[in-house]
Amino acid sequence: MSHVLAVLEQRDGAIRKVSHEVVTGARRLADALAGGAGVEALVLAAGPVRGADQLGGFGADKVITLTNAAFGLYAPEGYARAIADRVKAGGYGAVVFAASATGKDLAPRVAARLGRPLVQDVTDVSVQSGAVIAIRPVYAGKALLRVRVAGHPAVLSLRPNVFTPVQRPKAGSQETAAVDASRGRVVVTRIKAAPAGSLDVAEAPIIVSGGRGLKEPANFRVLEELAAAFGGRAAVGASRAVVDAGWRPHADQVGQTGKTVSPTLYVAVGISGAIQHLAGMRTSKVIVAINKDKDAPIFKVADYGIVGDLFEVVPKLTEEIRKLHG
């Protein structure tokens, strides 16, 4: 019987929310593997991690915290070595990461150390005849690639916002062990924090995105106010046109040369819907488009559209959302 290892993330000593999704995905995989495989959740940190005791409720049978003074901030080489050593010793059927900034950096290092292929940014997993089958978007979501992983362990990273955390009335066991490790040659010296409360578009459950229709950079304030009305659950995104024009930071760009996102709600404001933009956001659960051009391609993928002047529509929407959130 081979267990599934879920590799979790902490920041400032607290479990990151995306890790709940990783445990959920690992649980789904473990249940599909033959022989009642268990889920072991692994987190590396400088000391005890807040929220580790709640992971049993998302499907972890055991939560292992590996502590080392060098593990407070992400230590690429130290983390990769510790995880690869654990996997080699453990005989796992699968190793699952988040396809986050850290996960997408760490997973290739671990996979290479294991001599195993890596399937990044997975949106669905299943098991057929003992082999892991994964689906992942390619060409920025214009197509879906279905691959079979030969042999074990399968090494996967899961796209944020796709594996909705499922709560189970079960507590996992806890284990903490200090490990010998060095940080390695690559040292994260600090994190320059983004303004308090700002969410990354790759992980936000709600995205309010703006394009050329905003007319000038200062007008993005209208979208920031709408995002704020959602009470800390929304991020502001941008089309390539406005990022290339220098109106918004690259980190906010949604599309084929930006981020591919899958939020619960995507509100496209003043975005016509170039093919490379649509590719990056088409897997959103619900899409709302606000545009003055009724023939804009964005309306072809939107669930709900409003044709009109965004400078009238968006403030009204902000007002309505504020009412809901009282």
Partner: peptide, 22 residues
């Protein structure tokens, strides 16, 4: 060790509705 099983187009999003104007 990866075998491609298929490459498919994602399900078309149903064009939704125009809720209204303004």
């Amino acid at each position: 060790a990866l075998e491609i099983l298929s490459l498919t187009l994602p399900p078309e999003r149903q064009a939704g509705k125009i809720v209204g104007e303004g």
